[in-house]
Design a protein around this nucleic acid. Sequence first.
DNA 1: CCAAAAGTGTTGTTTATACACCCATGT
DNA 2: ACATGGGTGTATAAACAACACTTTTGG
Lengths: 229, 229
Amino acid sequence: MTRNEAVAPYCYSHPHPAVTTDVVLFTIREETLQVLLVRRRNAPFAGQWALPGGFLDPAEDLITCALRELAEETGITDVYLEQLYTFGRPDRDPRGRVISVTYYGLAPADRLTLKAGSDAKQTAWFPYGALPPLAFDHREIVDKAHERLVAKLEYSTIAFQFLPAQFTLSELQEVYEIIRSEPLDKRNFRKWVLARNLIEETGAQRRNGSHRPAKLFRTKYPGRVEIIR
Amino acid sequence: MTRNEAVAPYCYSHPHPAVTTDVVLFTIREETLQVLLVRRRNAPFAGQWALPGGFLDPAEDLITCALRELAEETGITDVYLEQLYTFGRPDRDPRGRVISVTYYGLAPADRLTLKAGSDAKQTAWFPYGALPPLAFDHREIVDKAHERLVAKLEYSTIAFQFLPAQFTLSELQEVYEIIRSEPLDKRNFRKWVLARNLIEETGAQRRNGSHRPAKLFRTKYPGRVEIIR
DNA sequence: CCAAAAGTGTTGTTTATACACCCATGT
DNA sequence: ACATGGGTGTATAAACAACACTTTTGG
């Protein structure tokens, strides 16, 4: 945020904050809940890990900005994002006043191919339980996203966003167990999810090792998060 | 949003949107859910009803801005506000790019004395079911706030924000009935709320007409909204 | 004594919890 | 044949839903 008018042609009669979006993208890999981070190349916090995000373009929607920054910095596209919260403490960015509209989202591990281009920031998944120190107030943002994720698991179809189009009931149960960090009874879980009428058998099975094959299911509400109960 | 540098000394190297806060304040009066609106004096939408709100000051928190604008435009202070959502469609304000961080809140009818000063905007309560046409995308904001209010009623102590420090069980039930717009069984409601251990008898009673007096209760969590269930 | 809102219990139904064994497959 | 994860039912407890009369007061 500069006031050098020679190189700063965007002028207003009263001060305007900058607006950014930041994204907390979760996935489940290696039986843990993980968060996508990028390493900052520039000051402030150069070299530190941070959430993918960046400044809002003049004519783009907030969600478009979030998706664009995610794609540019990590190569990930076509994920489900939902607005989380807007952070605006006056001192949250040492460069000046920056308002961050944050989004969180989920992606199935199989859909995630991180960008490998030479100009890409360094990008990596970290277990939610073992995050490195984060730039700005990004730790606070991640914690808020996690709180929302845990809450929404109970009363929405958000869990399906972690899974591919077809999945087994054991995989679905694992999602619930990892996010709630507690084991669930297999029979009761199956009763619960089937009673809610959210999924249906595809007819196909998955043979996956030296044991009985698992039936494959699909959600009846693909691509959309519904409120249940 | 001007680019005339003579009267616009706040300059940046890339375009910055303006940031506002807007507030959806609910109350219950005359057995209906009502929303606080102000009549706009200036273009755009001069003369139309709108939510109280305005531009963020350079060094103030978002919630501080919301409370300040509410106080300046309506005279109402000390209400509970919670961040609702951030609206940022590029065309939502004809003056240019404006991001609105919105809050919603509740206030007991007895605490609401609208500002009467000469420079005050015209301020009034409208039933949620009979709102006038609103400026900008404010109708969308009110609807989102209503949706959140209905949802939070079920799993938080938000209802107490509509009531004074001491209240009767009938008054509490009326809050639930009005927001959910359906009648509730008196015995089941009392069992439900008492089982949750959220309120306690004050010992006092209210004599209120030619009928049996009602016991007065207070919340065990005054001033704070807790998640229940 | 009448009107008006406050207060109070029981029963049936639905939903949640606890718990252990057989099934289909690959090696 | 055995190891592995997939699949299934029943019994108990808790929560919810339906429903009507008595109490206390003011006039």
